[in-house]
């Protein structure tokens, strides 16, 4: 039950793009075409989940026992950067087809604030699930949270890429061209997602 709550809350109610504003830069950058948006979503999904598991373990077994919490920011960003490199090398060797599909997006992900954002949220924020007392997530819940969040990222990204492909063919006033009209469209999408608040 609490896993279900985490999933619905992370995908719809607290959508990472539309209500937490994480990972906006790549969202605006690669959502011009549906195919690149899908590729980017896949890569983000993979990296966020993996990075969250690794940083969670590092925080729990390395930083906390030695009282080094203040190093969280530095440690996490280094772990994420190294992890992205490793994933890239391993994928190239093991699954060239997956590497072909995700390859170009991987280096971009290091600077995607969604990855660092989720990693930090998971180890610092206390969640209260279904009326229970607020507590930090355990490893299983953290993994599910990371996976659901990145699925939410993918859904918002792919929906928006679909809208944006239609926008491209329309007549838009000069000053609105490009980003402004895209931002206003996202705003309206975010308004639609507000309708989910109150479910959980």
């Amino acid at each position: 039950m609490e896993y279900l709550l985490i999933i619905i809350s992370a995908i719809f109610v607290n959508n990472i793009l539309l209500s937490q504003f994480l990972g906006i830069c790549p969202f605006l950058g690669v959502s011009n075409k549906l195919s690149t948006a899908t590729g980017m979503s896949g890569a983000v999904c993979f990296v966020i989940t993996l990075a969250t598991i690794v940083t969670y373990l590092i925080n729990k077994y390395l930083l906390l026992p030695f009282g080094l919490e203040f190093l969280q920011t530095i440690a996490f960003i280094l772990v994420i950067a190294a992890l992205v490199q490793i994933v890239e090398i391993v994928l190239k060797k093991i699954s060239p087809s997956l590497y072909q599909a995700l390859g170009i997006f991987l280096p971009l992900i290091t600077t995607n604030c969604a990855v660092l954002g989720v990693a930090i949220t998971v180890v610092t924020k206390e969640f209260s699930l279904g009326g229970a007392e607020a507590h930090l997530l355990n490893l299983g819940q953290a993994t599910v949270y990371a996976l659901a969040t990145s699925v939410g990222y993918g859904i918002a990204m792919i929906l928006f890429a679909g809208l944006r492909e239609h926008l491209a063919g329309n007549h838009v006033p000069e000053a609105f061209k490009g980003l402004p009209i895209a931002l206003i469209t996202v705003g309206i999408m975010a308004m639609a997602f507000l309708g989910f608040s109150g479910i959980v």
């Binding site: 209500s19 000069e174 000053a175 009209i181 206003i184 996202v186 309206i188 975010a190």
Partner: peptide, 22 residues
Amino acid sequence: LAFVMAPGAFIVLGYLMVLFNK
């Protein structure tokens, strides 16, 4: 209230960008 919540952020930034461009 919508302007303090998420949608307002995108919409205000979009329109300010339009004014800036113009």
